[in-house]
């Protein structure tokens, strides 16, 4: 359905924006390494089923892309552009995010199996793993416009999944309460950022016409 496709595209676009930002500026300043490492964990734990179940070519290719690109970004940040990388401001206590997500996955899952627990863990972790990035943004005070576009596209992706879940509930009679709950939490975390982004975009491109 349309929401699902739009969500996936916006997810794809967010990563392309991120890669382009890093390659063009030859720097990773303003980007949280912690958030990027958490994304590697999110994608690897969620897409373990790549090895066991086949959904579609589209599905497999996207999963491989998300795993590969997240690992690539971490490699860029830690190896290639390491010299220019300042980590002193990227100090969000990540252990609470990982620990909290793990507890949530033990409390909420569809089956008590290794892969289902990891899958649930990845949903909760994804919902909160932008926090170090938002924290860094707040600490540095200013951000390159491109970094905010990245966060916007990333937030939009899960927000678009919400109408997709409604659609699936009515058309396929399927309800994935775990995805919906984690997705709502994720969108809530982004909502403050969305508001600021919306205000700035309106200010810069809408009302300030000469």
């Amino acid at each position: 359905n349309l929401f699902r496709i739009a969500g996936d595209i916006s997810h794809l676009v967010s990563i392309l924006i991120l890669l382009q930002t890093i390659e063009k500026g030859k720097t990773t300043s303003g980007i949280s390494l912690k958030t990027q490492i958490l994304y590697v964990v999110v994608f690897v734990t969620r897409y373990l089923d790549l090895l066991t179940t086949y959904v579609s070519l589209y599905n497999s290719l996207m999963k491989i892309f998300f795993i590969a690109s997240s690992v690539y970004v971490v490699w860029l940040m830690t190896s290639k552009y390491n010299k220019k990388f300042k980590e002193d401001q990227d100090v969000f206590p990540v252990k609470y995010l990982v620990g909290g997500s793990f507890v949530m996955s033990l409390l909420f899952h569809y089956k008590f199996t290794f892969s289902e627990i990891l899958w649930s863990f990845s949903l909760w972790l994804e919902a909160v793993c932008i926090l170090p990035q938002l924290f860094l943004l707040q600490k540095t005070g200013e951000a390159k416009a491109i970094t905010t576009h990245y966060i916007f596209a990333l937030g939009l992706y899960r927000a678009l999944y919400i109408p997709n879940w409604f659609y699936r509930y009515y058309s396929e009679n399927r309800l994935d309460l775990l995805s919906v709950s984690a997705g709502l939490l994720q969108t809530t975390i982004y909502s403050d950022f969305f508001y600021v982004y919306y205000q700035k975009v309106l200010k810069n491109w809408g009302f300030n016409l000469p």
């Binding site: 579609s56 569809y110 999944y161 997709n164 009679n173 994935d176 995805s179």
Partner: peptide, 10 residues
């Protein structure tokens, strides 16, 4: 509705 994980999603 059938309560099950949407494993076909990303």
């Amino acid at each position: 509705a059938e309560a099950s994980p949407n494993h076909d999603e990303l």
